[in-house]
Amino acid sequence: MRGLLIAFGVMAILANPVAAKPPLRDVPKIDNALLDLGIADIIRKQCPDISARMLKALNYVWGLKAEAGRLGYTDAEIDAYIDSDAEKTRMRARGDEFFKARGVETSDPQSYCALGRAEIQKSSRIGSLLKAK
């Protein structure tokens, strides 16, 4: 009987292989949300007329971390993704593409302001993290 139970246990394990989690960079819900957070941060730093909704941003970050945890990622995996130099470089490149596609001139703070005001007006995720002074 014991041998039969062990055999069933082994078959159950083999029948249900543990699904490997994709890297967090491949989870659009998390990756795109962090990109939006970074874009909002750059806008508020570059535009003197816009500031951050800091409590909202902190809640947003905590919510993302909680969501990643619900998806099965450990704190160590989340921190490794956030702290990775390669991921920071990739996110900067994505942010640069975002700004370029929207006509932001990096040497002109007012172009960041125009984008920030547009994001605020359309109530985008980026705009929800910003406020006009």
Rank of each mutant, 00 (worst) to 15 (best):
A132Y: 05
I39W: 00
G3V: 07
L4M: 06
Q110E: 15
R125N: 09
P48A: 09
P23D: 08
C47E: 00
D31G: 04
D49R: 05
A118N: 05
L58Q: 11
I120T: 04
G9K: 11
L64D: 02
Q46R: 13
Y112H: 02
A118Y: 00
E77H: 11
E67Q: 13
S84T: 09
R125A: 14
A20Y: 09
G103R: 08
L71C: 04
V27S: 06
A93K: 12
R90A: 15
P23T: 13
A68T: 01
S111N: 08
I42W: 02
G95P: 00
A114V: 06
P48S: 12
I126L: 02
L130K: 04
D41A: 12
M91K: 10
S124I: 01
I42V: 15
D108Y: 06
V18A: 11
V10G: 11
L71Q: 03
G95V: 00
R25H: 13
F98E: 03
Q46K: 15
Q121R: 13
L4C: 07
D31Q: 10
A40H: 00
D108V: 04
E67H: 07
S124T: 01
P23Q: 10
T74P: 05
I39N: 01
Y73E: 03
V10T: 10
T89F: 13
S111P: 03
R2D: 11
D36A: 09
L130A: 03
A93N: 11
K100F: 11
I30T: 03
I6M: 09
Y73D: 00
K21S: 14
K45W: 05
A19I: 10
G9E: 10
R125I: 07
V61Q: 03
L115T: 03
M1W: 12
D83M: 10
D75P: 08
C47Q: 01
R92A: 14
K122H: 08
I126S: 00
R90I: 09
L55M: 09
S84V: 07
N32I: 03
K122R: 15
D83G: 07
R92E: 13
L130Y: 02
K122V: 04
A15Y: 06
S107I: 00
M11L: 14
A114G: 08
T74R: 05
L115W: 00
I39V: 14
L55N: 12
I82N: 09
P28Y: 02
D36Y: 04
G63C: 02
D31C: 01
A19R: 13
I13N: 13
P23M: 08
R25P: 06
G103K: 03
L34G: 02
P17W: 14
R70M: 14
K21D: 09
A52I: 13
S84N: 14
D83W: 06
V61T: 10
K131L: 05
Q121H: 11
I120S: 02
A15M: 14
G95D: 10
I6F: 09
I39C: 01
L4V: 11
A33M: 01
A40M: 05
F8K: 08
K21Q: 15
A57S: 07
